[in-house]
Nucleic acid binder design. Structure first.
Ligand SMILES: [Mn+2]
Ligand SMILES: [Mn+2]
Ligand SMILES: [Mn+2]
Ligand SMILES: [Mn+2]
Lengths: 137, 137
DNA sequence: GACGAAATGTAGCACAGGCTACACTTGCAC
DNA sequence: GTGCAAGTGTAGCCTGTGCTACATTTCGTC
């Protein structure tokens, strides 16, 4: 019998999607904020995510530990090269999911909200199908 | 100006989606297991979700607290009326999302995995659009 | 340069949802 | 009815992600 790679089941996959989710949303937001305002401060993220600045701080600690951001005390939040790469692919995927929902006929307001959650569970194959659907519009 | 209901932003919505997610997946699984085998035991759920039986136990405690299941020590897991209702609507939504991905051209294996995460972030408007797309196939 | 508001940091808390190790119960084989 | 395997329960641990309260720093205004 062919030695089959142990496949995580679908619930295991969803759990790992969620483990990456915060990182994806934060680096995307940090990149946007830097592009829009020249720098990203903790207070910007707290407002965007509707969480306390303490939660942002702790999250930044994890993202720094994981190599996605750098900060110094009282300084702005910067992205590492890995953070920029993750931001880019996350934004691209998010945009495709958003455009796809619009193409499906969903309203802008609902597409905004639903795509924010859906994006993290879309595998490359599904993303390609969504992209093709948008292009065929 | 019209008094607008305070809208939670999209990240707040995603967080509340996730808070409901475990309950939705578990009651769906419990209903399936009861339908398939006549009764649902903790060990069945542990195998299905690939978690330890301790995790299932603690989760059952929360679901019991929230009024979705009932159990007695060493007894099988039962659904309350509220649990059955949640299972029914969750399964229906899950099925539509799954069928939709298939209709989009995604493979069965990938549709299985992706729909397990996506289902929890699909609002009624998006679900209606997916349903219409499947019907129009 | 002093001051006050805004931003940031820190201590300490809570809950969800994972785990291992170990104890106890149940139920089936014999 | 004994015994063992499977199932279940419990203690105690961890990380992630949320919070309030309070201390400290920064920075623009005067
Ligand atoms: Mn998101
Ligand atoms: Mn999700
Ligand atoms: Mn489901
Ligand atoms: Mn699910």
């Amino acid at each position: 019998m062919t030695p089959t790679k142990k496949q995580p089941n679908r619930h295991t996959r969803v759990r790992s999607d969620h483990a990456r989710e915060l990182a994806e949303d934060y680096v995307e937001a940090i990149a946007d904020q830097i592009a829009a305002a020249g720098a990203c401060r903790a207070v910007d993220l707290a407002a965007l995510f509707s969480v306390s600045h303490v939660t942002v701080n702790r999250t930044m600690g994890r993202l720094q530990r994981d190599g996605f951001v750098t900060t110094e005390p009282y300084g702005p939040i910067e992205l590492t090269p890995a953070g920029r790469r993750l931001a880019k692919t996350s934004r691209r995927r998010h945009e495709i999911v958003h455009q796809f929902l619009i193409a499906l006929g969903v309203s802008e307001a609902v597409a905004d909200v639903d795509s924010e959650g859906i994006e993290h569970h879309v595998s490359p194959e599904t993303l390609a199908a969504m992209k093709a659907f948008v292009a065929a519009q």
